[in-house]
Amino acid sequence: MPSETPQAEVGPTGCPHRSGPHSAKGSLEKGSPEDKEAKEPLWIRPDAPSRCTWQLGRPASESPHHHTAPAKSPKILPDILKKIGDTPMVRINKIGKKFGLKCELLAKCEFFNAGGSVKDRISLRMIEDAERDGTLKPGDTIIEPTSGNTGIGLALAAAVRGYRCIIVMPEKMSSEKVDVLRALGAEIVRTPTNARFDSPESHVGVAWRLKNEIPNSHILDQYRNASNPLAHYDTTADEILQQCDGKLDMLVASVGTGGTITGIARKLKEKCPGCRIIGVDPEGSILAEPEELNQTEQTTYEVEGIGYDFIPTVLDRTVVDKWFKSNDEEAFTFARMLIAQEGLLCGGSAGSTVAVAVKAAQELQEGQRCVVILPDSVRNYMTKFLSDRWMLQKGFLKEEDLTEKKPWWWHLRVQELGLSAPLTVLPTITCGHTIEILREKGFDQAPVVDEAGVILGMVTLGNMLSSLLAGKVQPSDQVGKVIYKQFKQIRLTDTLGRLSHILEMDHFALVV
């Protein structure tokens, strides 16, 4: 994948999101292997301009796509893939009243899908469409860049269908997702969380590099694949309309690839034109409109599966009536509230959605109805927002919020430890010299600072030695090549209790 991002070429006709291997024109390309080798690009942008032909009021008969309808489940399912879809609609009884809503608040519980998330729908649909058009064949390999849930859905379907599955996901995604993927037989590649989507090191860039190296491999490409919004247009939206008897006044959905909100909203605009569509985008993402909503100094966020630093091709923002931004604290607070007060075992993005819903639905009156999409299960986040310690460490809970008995030293300040200034190293000294210094002084790690004293990161003896043994660096290389740029900081005025929580999850903390 090139470091400079080429513009994806656009073909003359058809839909841009065809499933299957992508040609340089962004659509299915038939021909000899030699032709494909000559024409197939190194990668295709996940934010390529959409060429979708959908228009409100256009006859369904003019759609270029294969459409399906929700099917009634048999008493005995032939395999677990038949437990994807037909998820329950559940009334939220307490939270709406707590925040003064007059309307009825309903939750579409997508964590009841077989793999635990709304992404099971698009995973199965992308595979079925690729099999139907002859792209996927027995023994082929599926590769997908994902925040985890699409990966789980694909790995689940691949396990049943017999495909090899490789999932490329950023490091910030939970260990629970990784464990589930491994249990399903998927191979996992992790990428830096802070890598831009168009960087060769991003999950998108690495996935395309693997595709170019592995024979008979395919990126189904949830960011561009029409099967993504079509899955929701054909099934999720129809289920909502049936469950609500066609009567709903507002739908609120958090947005990642945009397939969920695009597919549902398009069908609702056709069948229930008075329904307002509300999009939820986390602070630090750029999906919301108008652009002024996205202006923030924050560039990272903890909530998973929603928000991006690019506009995915499948996201149709014209069908969203209003956007709201959400933050991590309210997302996790509301997710825990949904679990504790409503018994809905949902993930953090569901918290984002409901946090926005109780604001947006203030305009609705008694007798009206708001539906929220709860995308995934708490299963993926047992060591994250479900953990009091994690919430404390991230600053989303305060010590006084917890009532468990603490040891005698818990409320003492870090400054009472009488710490001395640490050994520091410059980023320009060599790895070999740094190892000598650390061994001589008896230290395992040291902060790396520039000549102005600005902290650049941390270097550890173990990481340097393993990097040297693996051949990633040489003793003569500058130590700046092996620094940890993500590390926890703590102030002298913070409590030892807070430091204790940090050290339970990290090997060190830097006192500043």
Rank of each mutant, 00 (worst) to 15 (best):
E4P: 10
T5L: 04
A8S: 02
T13G: 10
H17A: 10
H17W: 11
R18N: 10
P21E: 10
K25G: 08
G26C: 09
E29D: 15
D35G: 14
K39F: 04
W54T: 06
L56Q: 10
R58A: 11
P59I: 13
E62P: 11
E62I: 13
H66V: 13
H66N: 06
H66W: 09
H66D: 10
H67Q: 10
T68G: 13
P70L: 10
S73I: 11
I76W: 07
D79C: 14
D79G: 11
K82D: 03
K82H: 10
K83G: 10
N93M: 05
G96I: 08
G96F: 03
G100H: 01
L101S: 00
K102W: 05
K102Q: 15
C103S: 06
K108Y: 08
F111M: 05
F112L: 06
G115S: 08
D120E: 08
R121D: 02
I122Q: 00
S123G: 05
R125A: 10
A130Q: 02
G134Y: 06
T135Y: 13
T135W: 10
L136V: 08
P138C: 09
E144I: 08
P145N: 01
S147M: 01
G148P: 00
I152R: 00
L154P: 01
A157C: 09
A157L: 04
G162T: 05
R164D: 02
C165S: 05
K172W: 00
M173I: 10
K177N: 02
K177L: 00
A183M: 07
A186H: 00
N194T: 11
N194R: 03
R196L: 13
F197D: 07
H203Q: 11
I214P: 04
H218T: 07
Y223F: 07
Y223I: 02
R224S: 02
A226Q: 09
N228R: 00
Y233C: 02
T235N: 12
A237V: 14
D238V: 10
I240G: 00
Q242V: 11
D245R: 02
K247V: 04
L248K: 05
D249F: 01
D249K: 15
M250L: 15
S254Y: 01
G258A: 01
T262Q: 01
T262D: 01
E270M: 05
E270H: 04
C272S: 14
C272D: 10
P273V: 10
C275S: 13
R276E: 06
